[in-house]
Nucleic acid binder design. Structure first.
Lengths: 222, 222
DNA sequence: ATTGTTATTTATCATTCGATAAATCCGGAG
DNA sequence: CTCCGGATTTATCGAATGATAAATAACAAT
C-alpha cells in the first residue's frame, strides 16, 4: 500500500509562502471551519494542513493545541451570529405575524443555517459540548418566547403577563423552528434531496406550522 | 502522567469468564451499540473492551475489523425496526386522522427514536453513510405519502390520483415528523430540557402541525 | 547586496489505535 | 480426574496522530 511520509505529500509546486501572522491565522481558522464541518472535530491536523497547503507543525505555531483551534472554530461559527434586530423583527406588530416569520426565517436560514454551522453544531452536540444548550437558551429567550407572545396576540388570546407561557407553547414555537431546521438537517447532514425553492419552502412551512399554533392557542386561551 | 498498559487496566477482580460464542457476540454487539451511541463511531475498541470487561483482541475474534462491528451495529439498530402495520395504521379511516397520528408517533417515539437510535443515526449521517438517505426514502414511501393521502382526505381535497402529491405536501408531512424528531434531538443529542410528558407533547404536536397541513391543503386543493 | 527577524519547514518523539500471533486456561467429554 | 478444544488473554507490531525542537529561507530594513 506504500504510504509516503507526510512531508513528501506536501505540494511543492507552490513554493513556501510567507504570510503575515494575521493572514495566516485567518487562513487556518477558515480552513479549519470548512475542514471540521466536513469530516468532524476528530479530523486530523495533518490533513487540515495539507488542504491549506502548509505543513502540520505550522498550525501549532498559531494554536498551541488542537483543542485551542477547535475552541476558536466554535467561537467563529457560533458567537455573535445572532442579531438583536431579529427579536425586534418578530415583535413588530405593524406587519402580519406570518410575514414577519417568513422574513425572519429567510434571513436566519441564509445567515445561520449554513452547511458549516449546522454540521459543526451537530458534531458539537454529539460531543457533549454545552454550546448547544447555551444556544437553545438564547433561542428560547430571544426567539421562541417572543414568537409565543405574538402568537397569543394573533390569536386574540390572553397576554403572556395574564397567563404565563406554558411548556407546550414553547414546544409549539419549536415546531415552527424544527420545520426549517430539519430541512437543513436533511440537506446538509443526510445530503438528501429537498425542496429546491428555499423561499417557497419557508413561506409554506411558516404557513402550515403557524396555523396550528394560533388555532390551538385560540382554543385554549382565546 | 504515567499511563498503565492497557492490559493492566483490565478488571481482574472478575476472573476470565468463558461464554458461548453466541452469548459473547450478543454481549459485544449490545455493548458496541451503547458505546458507539455515546462516544461516536470513532470510539476505540480498547475502551469498548474495557466496558465489556474483556480484552481488546477478543473483539477481533468475533469481528475481523472494526468496520465489520460498525456494520453490524448499523444492521442491529436500523434494519427491521419499521413495522409494516404502521402504514396500515396511518391509512385506517375508521378513526380520525389526528388519533391515528397520535397513536403512531407514540409507538414510533418509543420503538424507534431511542437514545441509541437517534445518536447513531446522526453519527452515521455526519459520516456520510447512505443509511440515512435510504431510511428517508423508506419513510417517504411508507409514512409521508400515506400521511399526505390522509391529509387530502381529511381536507376533502382531490385524491392523490387526481392531483399528484407535490413537493411541498411531502415537506408538510415532514413538519409533523420534524416536530417529534426534533424533540428527541434536543433530548438525546443536545441533552437539553424537554417537555416531560411525552404523550401530552405528541398529542399537542400532532394537533398543531396537522392543523396547518389540512388547512393549507383545503385552501389549495379543496 | 547584506543582514536580521521570524514565518515556515524538516525531522522526530511519545502515544494511541487497529490488528495479529502465540500463550493460557476454562469447562465439557470421557 | 484427565484431557482436549477453543474461548480468552498476553504480548506485540505498524501505522497514525498530536505535539516539539531545530534547521531553513522569505522578506523587510539598511
Amino acid at each position: 500500500m506504500m504510504m509516503q511520509t507526510d512531508t513528501a505529500i506536501q505540494d511543492r509546486s507552490r513554493a513556501r509562502q510567507r504570510l503575515s501572522p494575521q493572514e495566516r491565522e485567518r487562513q487556518i481558522v477558515d480552513g479549519a471551519i470548512a475542514f471540521f464541518a466536513e469530516v468532524g472535530l476528530s479530523g486530523q491536523t495533518r490533513e487540515l494542513a495539507q488542504r491549506l497547503g502548509v505543513t502540520q507543525p505550522l498550525i501549532y505555531r498559531y494554536f498551541p493545541t488542537k483543542q485551542d483551534l477547535i475552541d476558536r472554530v466554535y467561537e467563529e461559527v457560533f458567537v455573535g451570529r445572532w442579531r438583536a434586530s431579529w427579536t425586534d423583527l418578530i415583535a413588530d406588530r405593524s406587519r402580519p405575524l406570518r410575514e414577519r416569520l417568513i422574513e425572519f426565517y429567510g434571513i436566519y436560514a441564509r445567515d445561520v443555517l449554513s452547511y458549516e454551522w449546522i454540521r459543526i453544531y451537530m458534531f458539537a452536540g454529539l460531543a457533549g459540548e454545552d454550546i448547544n444548550r447555551r444556544y437553545i437558551a438564547l433561542l428560547e429567550d430571544r426567539l421562541l418566547r417572543p414568537i409565543v407572545t405574538e402568537v397569543r396576540d394573533a390569536a386574540d388570546a390572553l397576554g403572556t403577563d395574564a397567563a404565563p407561557i406554558t411548556g407546550l407553547e414553547i414546544e409549539a414555537a419549536w415546531h415552527i423552528h424544527a420545520a426549517v431546521f430539519y430541512y437543513f438537517v436533511r440537506k446538509h447532514i443526510y445530503r438528501a434531496k429537498t425542496e429546491p425553492d428555499l423561499d417557497e419552502f419557508i413561506a409554506d412551512a411558516v404557513d402550515r406550522t403557524l396555523y396550528g399554533a394560533i388555532e390551538v392557542t385560540q382554543r385554549e386561551l382565546g
